[in-house]
Design a binder for these strands. Sequence first.
DNA 1: CGAACCTCCTGCGGGC
DNA 2: TGCCCGCAGGAGGTTC
Length: 271
Amino acid sequence: MPELPEVETTRRGIAPHLVGKPITGVIVRDSRLRHPVSADIEDICGKPVTGIRRRGKYLIADTDDGALLIHLGMSGSLRVCERTEDHRKHDHVILCLPGTREIRYHDPRRFGIVLHLPAGDPLDHPLLASLGPEPLSDEFTTAHLKAACKGRTAPIKQVIMDAGIVVGVGNIYASEALHRAGIRPRTAARRVSGPRLARLVAAIREVLAASIEQGGTTLRDFVNSDGQPGYFRQRLFVYGRAEEPCRSCSTPIRHAVLGQRATYWCPVCQR
DNA sequence: CGAACCTCCTGCGGGC
DNA sequence: TGCCCGCAGGAGGTTC
């Protein structure tokens, strides 16, 4: 699925088409997402969209009377299309724009979310209220991560993937950041030293920022708002590279399942 | 509280 | 060629 870089890439792509303009109609072709898309989704229509924000892996389209909350789940994408094109299978929700275009929410697995939020602060919504800091913000500090790791026996990889601790780090970038920081994914969080946690904070920031620059990572589904894939996949050091040589030291990359998720690391670079 | 496990859903690639 | 199985970028829920 889209992790933070893919969601940010999507945000940047759709913003110019939405900000300052009203959504003129919503077509729900299949309401069966993670939360059913209710009829009040139409309430978003008419008022100009004042901005598109990202919070973790959520997108928020604000108006001065309510907002749209969108999550892309595992297989979701938002594309800007000409209205005349035929809709594809799994184009579940269509946001009509003034002029000739529309935005299509496409999500084969239907793990995503499209919700209308009434007036009020979207960040107070239960789905957003208990999220941890943004990894690219100043609030994501070594001290914060250190406090989150204190006493925790869970593997460090699972801790950095916990959205209550820091948002946006999914399965790809967790493996990548740990490689960059030289830390084994399975290490108990409480056993990672302060200096190594400082390296990890920096590594998370660096890998996410570098991926955003490349338009994110496409493994299978992800496309940006123009329907194009992201190019960070070719820059991945470990994810999906089992048995291939480490890009730093040529040792074959290891693979194991950790907390039900595929995990990759270099046994030499990561200790 | 934390940790381990399960679940939602569709599509695809590998093995036979 | 076709069928079955396992696996996939998320995250909320249950159980102990």
